[in-house]
C-alpha cells in the first residue's frame, strides 16, 4: 500500500500534528528538561548546576517519596476499581434498559461540575460537625467522637479516594462508543447458542473491548498522576503528607518554595514515571495492535 502518492499523503497527514507538537510542546518541554539541571528560582535566571536537583529529590526528600507512593496507590486504585466501575456501567447501559440514555447523561454530570464547587461539597459533606458522618455514626449506634475524615491522616487518603473513585463516566462514555460499533448479529448468535447476558458480557464483549479498555486505563492512570484540583480544594496534601501526590508537591515547590529548578526536576520524574506506566499498560493490553 505504500505507493509514492501514499507517501506524500502520509507526510501531509502527519505534518500538522507534528508541527503543533514540536512548536507548542516540544520547545517548552526542552526548556523544562534543561532547567531541571539548573539552579533556577522564580526570581533568578537559570544557571546549570548538574544533577543537584535530582540528588536532592531522590536522596534528601521524604516528601517526594511520600508523593510518589500516594500517586502510585491512587493510580492502581483508579486503573482497577475505577475503570472496572466505568466498564460495568457501560455494559449495563449497553443492555439498553428503559431510560438508558437518561442514565448515561446523568452519570456524566459529576464529571462536568467544576471542581471548585464539587470539592467544597465533599469537604462539607465529610465535615465532622456539619456533614454526613455524624448522623451516620449515630445511626450505626457508635459512641465517641465523630470521625474526622479529612482532618485525620489515617483516613484522609481514603476520603479523597471516595470523592473520585465512583465517577468513571469518562471510561463509560469511551467504552460505550466502542460497544456501539459491535455487530448485533454477533450478540444474536450468542443468545441463540444459549449464552446468558452475563456470559455475553464476559466472554464476547470484554475481549472485543481490549484496546479501548487499555486506552481507558491509560487515561485513568494519567488522570491520577495529574490529579490536582480536588486535593487542592479539600486537603492541600495534608494532614502530614497523607494526601500529597506528585502534582500537589510540584505545585508547592513552584509556588511556595519558588524553586523552578527543583519543580522541573519533579516534572521530569513525573513524566518518566508516567511514561513507564503508559508503556506497561500498553504491553499488558497489547495496545496498538489490531484485533485481527
Amino acid at each position: 500500500m505504500l505507493t509514492k502518492t501514499n507517501r506524500v499523503w502520509i507526510l501531509l497527514f502527519l505534518a500538522p500534528c507534528l508541527l503543533m507538537f514540536v512548536v507548542l510542546i516540544g520547545i517548552p518541554l526542552v526548556n523544562v528538561v534543561w532547567t531541571s539541571f539548573a539552579d533556577y528560582t522564580t526570581f533568578s535566571k537559570p544557571e546549570i548546576s548538574g544533577w543537584g536537583n535530582y540528588e536532592q529529590l531522590l536522596f534528601h526528600d521524604d516528601s517526594f517519596w511520600d508523593a510518589v507512593k500516594n500517586t502510585l496507590l491512587w493510580v492502581l486504585l483508579q486503573c482497577t476499581v475505577g475503570v472496572s466501575i466505568g466498564c460495568a456501567v457501560a455494559l449495563l447501559l449497553f443492555r439498553k434498559p428503559f431510560g438508558w440514555k437518561f442514565f448515561r447523561a446523568v452519570y456524566m454530570i459529576p464529571s462536568i461540575i467544576p471542581t471548585v464547587a464539587s470539592g467544597i461539597m465533599f469537604y462539607l459533606l465529610l465535615n465532622p460537625e456539619l456533614g454526613i458522618v455524624k448522623p451516620l455514626q449515630q445511626f450505626l449506634g457508635s459512641q465517641g467522637p465523630t470521625l474526622n475524615l479529612f482532618g485525620n491522616s489515617s483516613y484522609a487518603f481514603w476520603a479523597l479516594t471516595l470523592t473520585w473513585l465512583f465517577y468513571s463516566a469518562i471510561s463509560t462514555v469511551i467504552i460505550m462508543a466502542e460497544l456501539g460499533t459491535i455487530s448485533g448479529s454477533l450478540l444474536e448468535a450468542a443468545r441463540i447458542d444459549g449464552a446468558s447476558r452475563f456470559q455475553i458480557d464476559l466472554f464476547i464483549l470484554l475481549p472485543l473491548l481490549r484496546n479501548i479498555i487499555g486506552t481507558c486505563v491509560i487515561l485513568a492512570a494519567v488522570g491520577m498522576i495529574t490529579q490536582f484540583d480536588t486535593i487542592y480544594v479539600t486537603t492541600k496534601g495534608g494532614p502530614g503528607s497523607s494526601t500529597l501526590n506528585l502534582s500537589v508537591y510540584l505545585y508547592n515547590t513552584a509556588t511556595l518554595d519558588n524553586d523552578y529548578g527543583l519543580t522541573n526536576a519533579i516534572s521530569v520524574m513525573q513524566i518518566l514515571l508516567g511514561l513507564f506506566l503508559v508503556l506497561l499498560i500498553g504491553r499488558a493490553f497489547k495496545l496498538g495492535e489490531s484485533h485481527e
Binding site: G151, N152, S153, S154, K236, G237, G238, P239, G240, S241, N252, T255, L256, D257
Partner: peptide, 20 residues
C-alpha cells in the same frame, strides 16, 4: 516563609491526633 506556613498547616492535624 510560605513553605513553613504550609508545613505548619499540614502538621497541625498530626499534632492534634498525637502523630507528632
Amino acid at each position: 516563609y510560605q513553605n513553613t506556613l504550609d508545613t505548619l498547616s499540614r502538621l497541625l492535624p498530626e499534632l492534634a491526633f498525637d502523630k507528632i
